[in-house]
Design a protein around this nucleic acid. Structure first.
Lengths: 328, 328
DNA sequence: CTGAAAGCGCTAACAC
DNA sequence: GTGTTAGCGCTTTCAG
């Protein structure tokens, strides 16, 4: 049986309220009694009961970060940043909770949130439908929730996302400056808001610059009559590689530019260079935290429904073939 | 303000206890009142308060699965299996919680557990020191906890692990049967109990069979005078590949057998075949769940301190070079 | 400085 | 069938 305030009170011949005050360093209790009570609590192995505290406080001082899994940096980074930011700035705990993209699990977690098992939640959804189903439950009861990185199409819950549009415009511009005359967009994934914004930007900017533009999926076979200088856009390195696998003829006698988000591992093969837009997960995490916290603390009235906060990319890296370019 | 029993009671002109009973389908309440109360609760968006329920029940009906991250199947599988098993057999929820191998986060989570934020925990620790520091806190207060897959050296908390010793003995035997005359063990990682057991088994069985035996780390350079048929053992494919990278001469004119755990991706290059011991994560998860649950339900007295439950591997797969072996 | 008492939201004996 | 009462463990007025 775990020690309670009552038990300590009895052991120390004082009232529970005194024990409570002593343990919370209330200046009103005499130093002597505080010390005896504290040592008593220590030797009895006292720990405050979490449920009781949450009940009386009406809050848990906890925010959940709900993510599908932790395969890549896209999900690792928010976990780290949000945890320390919430702790330092708000004295809140972050609990990273996984739903593994399983609708049942996801549902149960949302249920628990509705029961106020946490004060707020930051959600990084998968592109799938699962995520859309339940977010209205949270919004309906005014539960503090924020989507990050991705989000269901027309959710009323505020979202913190990368400014994909401007990042892609910029990358198209860089490609044009480097001589590209045509753009192939393999962003694919209809229904994913991030990919959609990226595609729109690529289309917009390439038109503006009079570049040939082709939006296609990974299996599309591009005619070999296309210009010598082309740029391939996708959301990830793997998408680019998949596309090139079925279009290996493109690399023959061409200067290819590759552009994607987050990471490029290894050489920019078969391209000349690869542009990589690094998303700013630190800023995104912090803004998401600020948003949930302001909703938790009741300033939430000011958050417009369906707000979309766009965070610029941290940088656009240029990955080139260092062996070719190395002097000598 | 979220709806409470009290508010529903007032709205329905009944007592809170009646509302409570009605919502839990207590047969004592009249069907009519039950229905009105239920519809009332529905339209008011009532959800039971999690903290209050946990407080009065004295338990949370929740078990945490505490893991470093979710990079590989070693951590994915337990999450899936434990979640459904706990739900189906015990009506308990599983929450997958990440500590990201960060000592601070890990500590806070253990703290929360000590405050009974969950009824029990299954821990898959990293090989690092972080994990050992805090497990005595849990054990000291009799908090239901079980280590799975790996565990700190001499912890008193029960552990569910793979029967690494017998799996490795069997694999050594298979290698011998396939003609191997020598064994190189690259299991490395001193301090990791699983790796240690595997190494012991490889030594034991290779001695018994009069095979040459060499235990070394990845950077060790093996003399080229060794027998033609050798087997390389490690805990993972990557460890084997790292070793072979610095010992590429070994592959010349030799029939190499490779043996590791969990997965082999691609061809068994540069070996002839690769043996892969598949750990039985389903059984391990289920036994771990049964253990925590028996501790939670008070039958815990029977669990001997420092118990180690060894689960046999699911199977030992043989991965061969299908191109070479394909007929024609 | 400390105790008494009320209450957080919910459940469960115990009345009637 | 339903209301009354007490209590889970803790915090927080309000007295004294």
């Amino acid at each position: 049986m775990a020690a309670t305030l009552k038990m300590i009170a009895k052991a120390g011949n004082v009232d529970v309220s005194t024990v409570s005050r002593a343990l919370r360093d209330d200046p009103r209790v005499k130093a002597a009694t505080r010390d005896t009570i504290k040592s008593l609590a220590l030797e009895m192995g006292y720990k405050p009961n979490w449920a009781a505290r949450s009940l009386v406080a009406g809050k848990t001082r906890t925010v959940w970060l709900l993510i599908p899994d932790i395969r890549n940096s896209t999900e690792q980074a928010p976990a780290r940043h949000a945890a320390s930011y919430l702790d330092n700035k708000y004295g809140y705990d972050l609990m990273v909770v996984l739903h593994q993209n399983d609708a049942r699990i996801y549902h149960r977690i949302i249920e628990k949130l509705c029961q106020n098992a946490a004060d707020g939640v930051i959600i990084v959804p998968r592109g799938s439908r699962n995520d859309q189903d339940f977010s209205p439950m949270l919004h309906g009861r005014g539960f503090p929730a924020v989507f990050m990185d991705r989000h269901p199409a027309k959710t009323k819950i505020p979202c913190v996302i990368t400014d994909n549009f401007n990042a892609c415009r910029k990358m198209v511009g860089m490609c044009a400056d480097a001589g590209a005359k045509a753009v192939i967009d393999v962003s694919g994934c209809p229904g994913n808001n991030a990919a959609a914004a990226r595609s729109r930007a690529v289309l917009f900017e390439s038109r503006k610059r009079n570049m040939l533009h082709l939006h296609c999926d990974e299996r599309y076979v591009v005619s070999s009559e296309w210009p010598k200088n082309i740029a391939v856009f996708a959301t990830s390195q793997s998408a680019i590689c998949n596309f090139i696998r079925t279009n290996s003829h493109l690399a023959d006698g061409r200067d290819m530019l590759l552009a994607c988000f987050d990471d490029w591992i290894g050489e920019p093969f078969p391209g000349k260079i690869a542009l990589v837009a690094k998303q700013d997960f630190k800023t995104m995490s912090e803004r998401a935290c600020d948003l949930v916290m302001s909703m938790i603390n009741g300033n939430g009235k000011k958050i417009p429904q369906g707000s979309r906060l766009k965070v610029p990319v941290e940088s656009i890296l240029t990955v080139d073939n260092t062996f070719q370019l190395a002097p000598g």
